[in-house]
């Protein structure tokens, strides 16, 4: 055990920022890149999934079944297993299987599957009469998807996005165990393998505060994008 080889000595408080800040930066980078990819691919995919479903604007039940099935597979694997399973694919894309670049690939895949479902679900909660209204007003399918479906669902999508960002922070910590860096990596190497309680505690505080902040910002945005909540508060 590492505690036997290295005499147990917690990282002094003074050195904590030097250890944690770069790691935190790495975590934010990972989550940031992944969220960008997820938004760009997941949002249109969610809208597509919703509209090829029976009753959608481009009803294609067979395509919907296939898409839905693929997404369900992505959603059903625990992240650790997904990450390990697609190592060859990750190496093919990034040329490496460690580090931030390598972590971003499985995180994006899991994230896209996650977000696609969130968008699909949010659109489903918009009353179908809104689409009828937009069609009767002479809207093209693209206009209808933008103004009557997605725009109406924005608060729900933001609510889902909040859950998603928090899930991605969690995934980044799991990715940390295979050497992706970030707060998760520090927590595992110092807190777990070296029994450094100070570092362990510090990473926990950072994660709790980060998640709380994300939640607060998300809630604010939901309120801001829902006229009823925004104006009744004032």
């Amino acid at each position: 055990m590492s505690a036997l080889i290295f005499p147990r000595a917690d990282v002094p408080l003074n050195d904590l920022p030097a250890l944690l800040l770069p790691a935190y930066g790495e975590t934010l980078t990972m989550v940031g890149i992944v969220m960008a990819v997820v938004l760009v691919i997941g949002a249109p995919l969610g809208v597509l999934l919703h509209n090829v479903a029976p009753g959608g604007l481009y009803e294609r039940p067979a395509l919907h079944a296939v898409l839905s099935w693929i997404i369900s597979i992505g959603r059903s694997l625990p992240f650790l297993i997904l990450m390990a399973a697609i190592v060859p694919f990750t190496r093919f894309i990034t040329g490496t299987n460690i580090g931030i670049a390598a972590a971003v690939v499985p995180m994006s895949l899991a994230g896209i599957a996650f977000f696609t479902r969130i968008v699909e679900n949010s659109l489903r909660s918009v009353p179908p009469s809104m689409v009828q209204v937009a069609r009767a007003a002479g809207g093209s399918n693209l206009q209808i998807m933008r103004t009557a479906q997605f725009s109406e669902a924005v608060p729900a999508v933001i609510g889902g996005l909040t859950i998603q960002v928090i899930a991605m922070i969690e995934y980044s910590a799991i990715a940390g165990t295979i050497g992706a860096g970030g707060i998760g990596y520090v927590a595992v190497t110092y807190g777990y393998q070296r029994f450094d309680n100070t570092v362990m505690l510090a990473t926990i505080v950072i994660l709790v505060v980060t998640v709380a902040l994300v939640q607060i910002v998300g809630d604010r945005l939901v309120r801001f994008t829902t006229p009823q909540k925004r104006l009744q508060r004032a």
Binding site: Q132, V133, P227
Partner: peptide, 14 residues
Amino acid sequence: IGTVFQSSSLLSRR
């Protein structure tokens, strides 16, 4: 052809 739908057919965020 202009259509007036059942009430509550307004987009809620507009």
